[in-house]
Each structure stands twice: as C-alpha cells, then as structure tokens.
Design a protein around this nucleic acid. Sequence first.
DNA 1: GAGTTGATGTCAGGAACTGTCATCACCGTA
DNA 2: TACGGTGATGACAGTTCCTGACATCAACTC
Lengths: 188, 188
Amino acid sequence: MGRWEPDARGRLEMAALELYAEHGYDQTTVAAIAERAGLTERTFFRHFSDKREVLFSRGTVLEDLLTASVADAPADATAYDVVAAALEATATLLEGRREIAPRRQAVIDAHPELRERELGKMTSWAAALTAALGERGVEPRLAGLVAQTGIAVFRVSFETWARGGATDDLAEILRDSFAELRSATAGG
Amino acid sequence: MGRWEPDARGRLEMAALELYAEHGYDQTTVAAIAERAGLTERTFFRHFSDKREVLFSRGTVLEDLLTASVADAPADATAYDVVAAALEATATLLEGRREIAPRRQAVIDAHPELRERELGKMTSWAAALTAALGERGVEPRLAGLVAQTGIAVFRVSFETWARGGATDDLAEILRDSFAELRSATAGG
DNA sequence: GAGTTGATGTCAGGAACTGTCATCACCGTA
DNA sequence: TACGGTGATGACAGTTCCTGACATCAACTC
C-alpha cells in the first residue's frame, strides 16, 4: 500500500465529470472536485493545467495513435486515404469509451469554454497529422489541407455518434462521411 | 461633447492589442488595458465578456456577411460553390484590415487560449454557414460537411495571408486553395 | 539507516470575473 | 426651467482560478 490512494489522476477525472454533469461546469469549483477525489485543490492543478483540461488529457493517447497510423500506412497510399485510415483506427479505439463518451460530450456541449478546448485538441490532432504526412514526403500545403479536412469530417462523424446515442459504429459513420465528401467536391 | 470620451470600446480594443503585443497576453492585466484606455477594469468587462474577447468581437460583422452572401447566391449554384463564394466575399472585406491583421494574428498565435477562442469563432462561422445553407434547402448533413470544409480551407488560406506578410490577395489565395482541394479529393 | 525522490499538503497572493449600488451627463416632457 | 428617466461609467466587495514557495512523509536506494 502506498501512502496515498492510487490513481489520483483518474479519481480527479471521474469526480470532475460527475460534478460537471450534476451541477454544471460553472457551478463546480475545483476545490469541490478535489474534495470528492479526496485531494486538495493544489494537487488538482499539479495534474491538470486548468479546470478544463481534466476532461481532455486522455486525448494524448489518440493523438499518438494517429501519428503512428500515418507512419505505418502503405507507401503508395494517397494522403487522403492515409488520413482516412488513421482516423478510422482512432475511431475503433474510441468504441471502448461508449459508456463515458456521451456523458462527457454532453458536458462539453453545454459550455463554450469546453467546446473551445475541444476544438483546440482537434486542431492539435490536425497538426500531428500534418507533421506525420510531412514525414512521408507529402508536400506541406497539401498535407495541411488534407489533415484539416480529415479532422472536419471526423468532427461531423463524432457528433453523429456521440450525440445520437452511438448506435452505429463510429468507424462506419466515418467511412460514409469520407465517401460523401468525395462526391460533394467531385467534378470541379 | 458627451460626458465621456467617445468610442470606449474601440479604445479598449486598441489598448489591448498594443499591450498584448508589447508585453504578451499573460503579462497584461485587464486593469492595465483599462487604464491605458482611460477606463476601469469593471468597464472592460461590460464591453467584453472576458480578456480574450477583446480581440474577437469584430468578427460578428464577418459572420453576418457570410450569412448574407449565402442567402444571396444564385439558386442553381452548388453548396460547395456557394460557400466558396461567400468566403471570398469575406476575404475581400478583410483586405481592409491589412495593417492590423498580422499584428493581431501574431498575438493570437502566441497564446493557446487565444488560438482556442479563434477556433471557436471559426466554428461559429461554420455553424452560420450551415444554417444559411439549410435555408437554401441543402440537406443538413451535406451542409455541415461543406461548411466545415470551407472553413478549414479558409483557415489554411488565412494563415498564408496573415503570417506571410499578406503580399497576395486573400481572395486569390482562397480560390487557389479551393481548387487544390478539389484535385486532392477527386477520383475516389 | 541516512539520504534522495516524488507525490501530496499548506499557505499566501495575484489576477480574472461578478454583483451591487452610486454617480452624473444627457434627453424628453411638462 | 425643472424634473424624472436612461445609460454608461465608477467604486468596492467578494468568489474562484491559478501559481509560487516551502513543508511533509512514505518508498526507494545505497
């Protein structure tokens, strides 16, 4: 047995999600989150840079997966296909969070500051994708365009999945969306 | 003569941009901005919801223009073309801010919280575009995809313009980017 | 078993933001 | 001309977010 209960970070995340959902983001103080987790406010800020980040720090794992997927893609695949495949891989991993994802998403949707943070994370993913495509020799400008577009498609698909109760597979929704965008932009 | 100097809001915007640029966003207190503008901190928060918003509240005008452009587009234009044209119109208006835009952009780029707010605004534009397309009878899902994609293209183009010293026309850069995206996604 | 390390606690304090009430030029009206 | 209403601002107290500095103490190392 350690001196403290294990997984302080996880407890803070859980406590925050519960309190944000119960009383709203604004009505929840960091002190209250820490207290429910059996810790102090100061410790909260050692684990998370601010009050928002407690809902987002897991995203790092997904970003790493994205980067790895792009790196491992077949050498002859187009940039567009590489990105689509990488996002589908991420989607598969997200299926494991079916329980938490909708609750978390509801909290985020309910507050502008949290939506902004979410957008920041998505953009960080786009940057990671752009860099990974660059590593493959894709021209920077094209890499940026394809990455940004891919993330845009992901956003739309994720909304359908997380807000709609997640009856379909996220990966499937993604595939459909990519196909739809192809049709929409074709013929210029 | 009024009781107070005119254009308090504008003075606050100017003071904020200058101080953010000189000392950095973090090192600038709202009290300092207010003081330079000859006002009090409390008044700052009456004009702007928070310390970030002072750099962004002008965006409302652009959003209105976007909505209007979409509404006025020819009835037979495709959703994709309508969005491209609306963004080009906005771009033309932005040419008038050539002096301020790069300084403002540098400030925003230098701080994550400001970048997040910028993303929020862009997303708000995307939502406005989506709604305006919906008014034209475009199917919601397609409207969302095209709007998000359009904004993504705008972002990339705007970066090229504002960061690169703005030698070319923003509208021109936009046109090129839209064309490039067509090529990149074609043939699926 | 002494020293080091790492996660946490404690405390003080700055800055962001809000609520509330006071002030006072301007404006319309009698 | 007086007079009450309006709207932008000031003054001030209070809460919460977030940070820096230092203390504590189990576990680990040698």
